[in-house]
Design a protein around this nucleic acid. Structure first.
Length: 259
DNA sequence: ATGCCAGGTAACACCTGA
């Protein structure tokens, strides 16, 4: 069994004790990290390697940054999402783990406020992701596209949809693109096992959002048919969000047969 | 309408996040 998790850690250096404790506790085989907020040279490799992980990063100073951790070697790594050579934001890395599982760590742009170029950038980035997934699927490989999609797929995936009516995370343009990517043939791992509304992966630091369970579901694991055929379980590990010095996101995980 | 919290950078204030 291969346990794969995605986690937006909101700075890997600020979160290092939490990350190490969770890796020991939860013992995932593969982890897709987002918002490491670190250049490659300053990623805390030693501490994580000591727990038995191989590491590949696509870092950036101050903002963004993604990484893959795996107990197996990580092969054929590619950094950046194809389609815009001018894009300097580190939001995408993919590689092969456990011989035949292709994983991608995705940090999709937030896009707020919606009347600015930030929203335009988000939509263009989603169009590029769509095009990339389209090129991946005909290879008929086991693919896991995981990460912080910054999309609330349904009104049931947020504590108060009305409060997010003008938010980039719920706009029809964002949701339709997320749906279109799924409709290429991907399976939402969590929703294969859990159809309950109001399951969250993010809680704002402000206004006591965690204590009041005022959350959002924006971290998703989307599986190719070959991965979905091996899917044995999925869930949200809310443990890390309740700890001291927590990230505002908590890990979402799935388990694939094999390895 | 704004700050509420948190992290990073740089410098003791401002940007970004969702």
């Amino acid at each position: 069994m291969i346990k794969i998790a995605t986690w937006n850690v909101n700075s890997v250096k600020a979160r290092l004790p939490n990350v190490l404790a969770w890796l020991k506790d939860f013992a995932p085989d593969v982890v897709l990290l987002q918002e490491i907020k670190s250049v490659d040279e300053k990623f805390p490799r030693i501490e994580i390697e000591d727990l038995g992980y191989n590491i590949e990063t696509h870092g950036q100073k101050t903002y963004n940054g993604v990484a893959i951790l795996s107990k197996s070697p990580i092969e054929d790594v590619s950094r950046g999402l194809p389609g815009d050579e001018e894009d300097v934001q580190a939001r995408y890395i993919e590689g092969t783990v456990f011989g035949d599982v292709r994983v991608a760590s995705i940090y999709l742009p937030n896009g707020n406020p919606i009347d600015t170029e930030k929203f335009t950038y988000k939509l263009a980035w989603m169009d590029r992701l769509y095009a990339h997934v389209q090129t991946c699927l005909p290879q008929e490989e086991c693919y896991v596209f995981g990460g912080d999609y910054n999309v609330i797929p349904k009104d049931d995936d947020v504590y108060n949809a009305a409060a997010f009516a003008k938010d980039a995370l719920t706009q029809p343009e964002s949701r339709s693109r997320f749906q279109a990517i799924k409709h290429l043939g991907l399976t939402d791992a969590l929703r294969t096992f859990n159809h309950k509304p109001h399951q969250y992966s993010y809680w704002d630091y402000q206004r006591g959002a965690w204590q009041k369970d005022n959350g959002l579901l924006i971290d998703h694991l989307l599986l190719s048919p070959q991965a979905a055929d091996r899917l044995k379980g999925a869930g949200i590990d809310k443990g890390p969000r309740g700890k001291e010095k927590a990230s505002d996101h908590t890990p979402v995980w799935c388990e694939l047969e094999g390895g």
